[in-house]
Amino acid sequence: MTRERLAGLSEELLHKLADKLDVDIPDDAEVGGLVDLVSDALEEARADHNESNNNAMRVEERKYELARFFSEKDLTPVNDDENDLPERYNETRMHLMVRDPAWAFCYWDVRDEQLVSVTADPEFEELILRIVEMDSLSFDDHTVVDSFEIPVRLNDKSRYINLPRQDTSYYTELTALCGDRHISICRSNPISVPRGGLPDVVSHANAVDDRKDRVLALSGLEQLGVPRFGSEIPGRIISLIDRYAGNE
């Protein structure tokens, strides 16, 4: 959206956009000043967003860039109640999704009657989200390796979970803490979390296989744009990257 276009917007819309962009508006700001502030904030937001993207995402966004960043349509979304979806489906379920080696996302819902019943327990204290690490992706044949708990509010419906370990499996469980009892309400599907780094045999190799190391060095390890959750690239491979792949 250009400065010219901003100048053509009503003061109400400018304030709405300023709110959306978290712009502090001085009490005595006139329309011209407001336009400047919003315009600068838009440019800054655009630059920050662009910076957060890798090359593939930047290119992909160009496909949809007819207007510049915010279009007027986004300032005046269709106020159509019919278009809204239910916040929940009044069922008891929990779904766990792996986002990357460090984070998972969990959403859940508890049937009204069940929640009433659980909270009616005289010893009910709070709902607990249990994150359980297990040694297998199968519920039929697993051993709990570790677990930790996060208290959640009655009206919480989702949560991002920072995963302590990679190359393992997790599930989550919603429980009600009633005195010293944990009453299980629902359990999620299991997820498998990737290692997020080179195989151990590469990271901790004692005997160096120069040929294989050179292939890895040439495979763009330093350009992946992927955080490493396991070991760093071994020094012996970094030196090969400098030698073979960095000779542009």
Partner: peptide
């Protein structure tokens, strides 16, 4: 995608979609 996994398609702005 950014950082090599799913954060573009699963973040605070769009995670409501999957429910």
């Amino acid at each position: 995608g950014n950082k090599g996994y799913g954060e573009v398609w699963l973040d605070g702005s769009n995670d409501w979609v999957y429910r």
